[in-house]
Design a protein around this nucleic acid. Structure first.
Length: 201
DNA sequence: CCAACGATGGGT
DNA sequence: CCCATCGTTGGA
C-alpha cells in the first residue's frame, strides 16, 4: 500500500531508515517501473552544511524542499544527471531524503532499455540502479517531476516487500560531501548491509 | 552578465 | 584517480 502524508511528515532520520525496503513506483504512459529502495541519505537543513537548504538558502530550484513532507525534490547535477529526494517534515522545514540506490523490481526490460547506452558489454545488472542518478535514468525520473506529490498516482512509494527478515540496516557517513565541515562525518547514510545494489560509495 | 561549481558516473 | 558536462547560483 502507498505511503501517505503522515509517513513523510516526520523526523528525517527515521524516514530515511524506514524507506529502506519500500518500493519506488513510477507510472508513465510508456509503462511502469518499480525499484526496491536499498540506500538513502538524510539532509537536515537548514543547519546541515551538506544540505542545499543550508543556512536557509531558498532558491527557485529547491522550492519543493520547503513544502510539507511527501513531495519530490528532483534536481539536475553535472549537466546530465538527476537526483530524487523525498521531502520530509512539515512545511518550511527544508529537509529531505536522497534515494541513492534501488534494486530493480520491474520492468527490467524498460530499465535496461533506458540505461543500456551507458552500460558496457561486460557490466553487471547491478549497474542498472546502484546510484542516485542511475536509478533516475532507469526509472525515467527527471526535473519534470520536481515538486510532484508522492501521495499522487504517478510517482509514489509503497510498503509492499518491505524488509526481509535477514535484512540488516547499517549507517555510514554520506557520500561526496567533503565540503560540509563538521557535518561531513554524520552517519546519515542508510543501507541494507551486503545488498549488491547499493552504490559504490 | 558570466565564471565557478557540483548530494555523479564512467572509464583508467 | 581523472574528467566530461551544463543548469543553477551568486557576485560583478
Amino acid at each position: 500500500m502507498k505511503l501517505e502524508r503522515s509517513f513523510y511528515e516526520r523526523n528525517t532520520l527515521i524516514v530515511a531508515r524506514e524507506l529502506l525496503g519500500c518500493v519506488l513506483v513510477h507510472i508513465t504512459s510508456e509503462g511502469t517501473t518499480k525499484g526496491r529502495i536499498v540506500e538513502t541519505e538524510a539532509y537536515l537543513g537548514p543547519e546541515d552544511k551538506a544540505a542545499h537548504s543550508y543556512g536557509g538558502r531558498h532558491t527557485p530550484r529547491m522550492e519543493p524542499l520547503y513544502k510539507t513532507g511527501g513531495f519530490a525534490y528532483v534536481y539536475q547535477l553535472h549537466g546530465h544527471n538527476y537526483c530524487l529526494n523525498v521531502v520530509t517534515q512539515k512545511e518550511d522545514i527544508p529537509q529531505a531524503v536522497l534515494i541513492r540506490a534501488v534494486e530493480p523490481v520491474d520492468s527490467l526490460e524498460s530499465m535496461i532499455q533506458r540505461r543500456k547506452i551507458y552500460i558496457s558489454k561486460k557490466s553487471k545488472l547491478k549497474n542498472l540502479t546502484n546510484g542516485p542518478s542511475k536509478l533516475c535514468h532507469a526509472m525515467d525520473i527527471d526535473t519534470s517531476l520536481n515538486g510532484i506529490d508522492l501521495c499522487g498516482d504517478e510517482l509514489f512509494i509503497t510498503l509492499k516487500n518491505g524488509l526481509d527478515s535477514d535484512d540488516e540496516i547499517i549507517a555510514t557517513k554520506r557520500i561526496h560531501i567533503d565540503y560540509a565541515d563538521e557535518y561531513r562525518d554524520k552517519p546519515w547514510r542508510f543501507l541494507l548491509k551486503g545488498n549488491e545494489f547499493v552504490s559504490r560509495g
